[in-house]
Amino acid sequence: MARIPTICPFCGCGCSMYLVVDGGRVTGVEPSPANPINKGMLCAKGWNAFEFVHSPDRLTKPLVRKNGVLTESTWDEALDLVCSRLTGIRDTHGPDALGFLCSAKCTNEENYLLMKLARSAFRTNNVDHCARL
């Protein structure tokens, strides 16, 4: 059994918690006792934050729409398609025909890379995230 330090995925308080891992599965949550934000506490959302992790309806394979239907695909095919379609649209309609939405749920590193992808690879500043909503 291992205890891995993580941050609650819900609100902006950023409570720190350990995920209890047993046999490759998350089996529980323990609040960090010394972290200055939550000091050993969590709210009901935090206490149950791990439950959706092993949900049976998680997405597990890349899907590509073929003849109108989402169809299982490989990473190679899906990423190839993403690159060729985005590049094609940029070449035909210009960089500002593309938009990128970062995420208030993803990490800093991930948001940085997506911002870099938009600005460096595609030359567009159409970059935003949903949290202004």
Binding site: C11, G12, N108, H129
Partner: peptide
Amino acid sequence: PLRGQNNVQGACDMGGLPGVFT
């Protein structure tokens, strides 16, 4: 201001906005 989701602040800090880099 209290941010609604766990990384709203970070998404903004990382340049996830139309007018700014990190």
